[in-house]
Design a protein around this nucleic acid. Structure first.
Lengths: 110, 110
DNA sequence: GCTATTCATCGTACATTTACGATGAACGAA
DNA sequence: TTCGTTCATCGTAAATGTACGATGAATAGC
């Protein structure tokens, strides 16, 4: 599959953007992030009651968001508190902001 | 796989964000968009010389970007000119902007 | 008409994603 | 110690994603 991927050189930003975009590429994860971002904090337990999905599935999505660095978890037995990872959130915001403003409104005649 | 996806209600924004994020979730597509956004315009032919991938693969990625609405193609035989879809680009920019600024810097003690 | 060029699409192989239920680990409370 | 609660991980099945080469469609030029 990635036979040629190693032959192509990507910038750090390109890889970082794609990784964050992949984390955001599922509506459930958008919803989870909105819940975490909108409220001051959340527990996974609340998420399982708010989202009609198997607990294991939600846990998988949380893991994906964790590995993307968008959220952080604080173990607070027997619960785990998940929050937005503010530092990386700001970085992601800057990456997307730069990306979308990089478009030249130049002389294209399309 | 999506046995329960229909049971969950997503807002229009959540679905739109996820769809755009999915289009951005591969470094090659980020690179293509950067090339199209940075220059005034591009032809697919230039892309195949700039990116060491099979022509069919690049065409597939362009199709994905087209279906996400991020680019538009103008048939100019025997070439096809691809440009950023400025209107949808602005919409995407607004969606991501709102999304990333929706985070409350409230009273979380993480 | 015939050929060359450009790009899309088809068919295919393999990897990844996504969902589920079942099980495991960690801890508090009885 | 023994339950009960909470969350992570495992195993698995089906769908999707990603790459390739081969083929097809459309057009310009001879």
């Amino acid at each position: 599959m990635q036979r040629t991927l190693s032959d192509i050189s990507y910038s750090t930003d390109e890889i970082a953007l794609a990784a964050i975009a992949k984390a955001l590429s599922h509506p459930v994860r958008i919803k989870i992030l909105r819940l975490l971002a909108g409220e001051t904090c959340c527990f996974t337990g609340e998420l399982t009651s708010l989202i009609p999905m198997a607990q294991s599935t939600i846990s998988q999505h949380l893991k994906a968001l964790l590995e993307a660095g968008l959220i952080q978890g604080e173990i607070n037995p027997p619960k785990v508190k998940y929050c937005i990872h503010r530092e990386n959130w700001a970085k992601a915001q800057a990456l997307f902001g730069d990306f979308f403003t990089s478009e030249k409104s130049g002389g294209c005649n399309c």
